[in-house]
């Protein structure tokens, strides 16, 4: 009888320990990385409303709003493997410090050499009905009358033209306004490892929006409010706003 008791205790102990071990193995190592979007106008930090900037058309302007969707984020490693963030939808509001830094979780350990993301929202989520989180229509980044997300909003005032409003979207067809952006880390590596939260800093340059690839004159274009040719052209402008700044491992 006693032997049987001993055996029971031993078996029970083994079961408990092995169960513990398994749990530890299953739990993922939560590799993390941060991406910070620093909004600038040329060499200056972007300050809303009060600071007057000059664009490549020699127009003077202030910025009152800058919001955009960053989605489908991917990191590429030095061995060319790719990490794709699941459910990757983020609304960046340049005015809101809580949104201009993203924390990406469950990133596998390794040295990453570039990031790729979409400015805008993929067509699937544009046609899939009521969404929540970053894609909630409450976020004021949605066209209801011609349904689809507004990918990018920039608003401001121009001394030569008055107020300007650039709302850009359009998820399908020849005027689709999503743009894939890849930023290389210029030989630097973002090192994801246990106990570390490396940080990628990107510059988002309003001056570039007005100059590259097309020169945008606010006098000539004060308003974009729907999907179409103008939206698609402005999408080419925002595709070039994102540049590598530095990495803090």
């Amino acid at each position: 009888m006693k032997v049987l008791q001993y055996i029971s205790i031993v078996v029970l102990t083994v079961v408990i320990f092995s169960a513990c071990k398994k749990d530890e193995q299953i739990a993922p190592v939560p590799g993390m990385a941060k991406i910070e979007f620093n909004h600038v106008v040329g060499a200056s930090d972007l300050t809303f409303n009060s600071v007057v900037y000059t664009n490549s058309s020699a127009e003077t302007f202030t910025i009152s709003k800058l919001r955009y969707y960053v989605s489908n984020i991917q990191f590429t490693k030095d061995d060319n493997t790719v990490f794709v963030e699941p459910e990757s939808y983020h609304l960046i509001d340049a005015k809101d410090e809580n949104t201009d830094e993203l924390t990406i979780s469950n990133v596998p350990d390794g040295n990453y050499t570039s990031i790729t993301f979409m400015i805008g929202v993929d067509s699937t989520r544009n046609v899939s009905g009521a969404q929540t989180g970053a894609l909630d229509p409450l976020n004021d980044m949605f066209w209801d009358w011609n349904s689809g997300y507004i990918f990018f909003k920039m608003e401001g005032d121009c001394d030569q033209a008055g107020s300007f409003i650039y709302h850009v979207g359009g998820y399908s067809g020849k005027y689709a306004a999503q743009r894939m952006v890849t930023v290389l880390f210029n030989g630097n590596k973002l090192t994801v490892a246990e106990g570390k939260i490396p940080q990628l800093l990107l510059h988002v340059d309003v001056a570039s929006f007005f100059s590259t690839p097309n020169t945008i004159s606010i006098v000539d274009l004060t308003n974009s409010g729907s999907a179409g040719a103008t939206s698609s052209m402005l999408a080419d402008q925002y595709a070039g706003m994102f540049a590598f700044d530095k990495i803090q491992n």
């Binding site: 229509p137 209801d144 009358w145 011609n146």
Partner: peptide
């Protein structure tokens, strides 16, 4: 203009000449 049955009600609710409200 509306691509999904779920999205449709946002239009009359927020249209200033229909129900004139905000979702909030």
């Amino acid at each position: 203009g509306v691509n999904n049955l779920e999205i449709q009600p946002i239009n009359p609710i927020t249209n200033p000449i229909e129900m004139g409200e905000t979702l909030e």
